[in-house]
């Protein structure tokens, strides 16, 4: 695999799912599986075979870190860059996410026109293929 193609996106807010889908598919030409619940993502992850996990942090029922732990049960998360998306701008929080194994943190509100490029850069860096 030489480029980023498939993204598993977990986000409870429908509006953001829509924006993110347009940003990644229409602007970035990527394939996105959008899940509104962590459990839903865990169920479909293995079958979808993502290249990158994009997880919202604050969600009802199961938050981002819990979802990541759940995903680790069904797929080898260490093979994929994990990107947390959060509305919290606190750098202390961000450090905690990195400690959980995050490759990057995207702060909301994000720029939908550059989100795909941002994720591609993260993916490339994660796979050591960045220039």
């Amino acid at each position: 695999m030489t480029t980023l193609q498939r993204i598993l996106h977990v986000e409870d807010d429908e509006s953001i799912i829509t924006i993110t889908r347009v940003a990644l598919e229409t602007v970035g030409g990527l394939t996105v599986l959008s899940c509104t619940r962590g459990r839903e993502a865990i169920e479909q992850a293995a079958e979808f075979a993502p290249d990158l996990l994009l997880l919202d942090v604050m969600m009802p029922d199961m938050d981002g870190p819990t979802t990541l732990a759940g995903l680790a049960e069904v797929i080898d998360v260490a093979r994929y860059p994990v990107v947390f998306m959060t509305a919290r701008a606190n750098s202390d929080d961000h450090r905690a996410y990195y400690d959980l194994g995050a490759a990057a943190v995207v702060v909301k509100p994000f720029d939908p026109m550059t989100l795909a490029d941002q994720l591609k850069t993260i993916w490339n860096r994660f796979n050591g293929s960045e220039r």
Binding site: S15, T18, I19, A87, R88, A89, P112, M113
Partner: peptide
């Protein structure tokens, strides 16, 4: 402040994202 900031950012993300996309000519 934490909750408010999250609760404000979430809809803001959608509004701003939608506008960015429209103004970016994506639609």
């Amino acid at each position: 402040v934490a909750v408010a900031s999250h609760e404000l950012r979430t809809p803001l993300t959608s509004i701003k994202g939608a506008l960015d996309l429209v103004n970016g000519g994506v639609i």
